[in-house]
């Protein structure tokens, strides 16, 4: 090699060699972090997908219920509540309320009559 007039600073060269020698370790760490990020983002995407699918599957039922509510008059709604849900939940509600409270509810009276 011909003399080119360029003098490499020994300290700089040593620092550079140390930095370059550390590259494989840093690369491995980077690959591990990247793999972790991939796994985490895949899991997050899977959760989001599951939630979305769940919402999608319940959406028609909710829409149907909303439509029913819009189409149904208040009177029909009351009748429906008395005959369907109230009947089915009466026992449960009975367990939560005292007899006196139950007697005060006009709906209970209506269903009793």
């Amino acid at each position: 090699m011909k003399h080119d007039g360029i003098h490499l600073n020994e300290a700089t060269l040593e620092r550079l060699q140390n930095r370059l020698s550390d590259l494989p370790q840093r690369e491995r760490r980077r690959v591990r972090v990247r793999r972790l990020v991939t796994v985490c983002s895949t899991a997050a995407a899977a959760v989001v997908l599951l939630v979305w699918l769940r919402l999608e599957s319940t959406a028609p039922a909710i829409l149907q219920a909303e439509a029913w509510l819009h189409q149904t008059t208040n009177l029909e709604l009351m009748e429906s509540l008395e005959t369907r849900s109230w009947d089915s939940n009466a026992e449960e509600l009975g367990a939560l309320l005292t007899d006196e409270e139950l007697n005060q509810l006009s709906l209970v009276k209506t269903s009793e009559s």
């Binding site: 090699m1 080119d4 360029i6 490499l8 060269l13 550079l16 060699q17 370059l20 020698s21 590259l23 494989p24």
Partner: peptide, 23 residues
């Protein structure tokens, strides 16, 4: 034994390659 091979390359080639980049 790539890590050992790489270390040897760094030791032998850093000075001439650094010189080339500066030049």
């Amino acid at each position: 034994r790539y890590e050992a091979a790489y270390a040897l390359l760094v030791r032998a080639q850093t000075p001439p390659l650094f010189r080339l980049a500066v030049r």
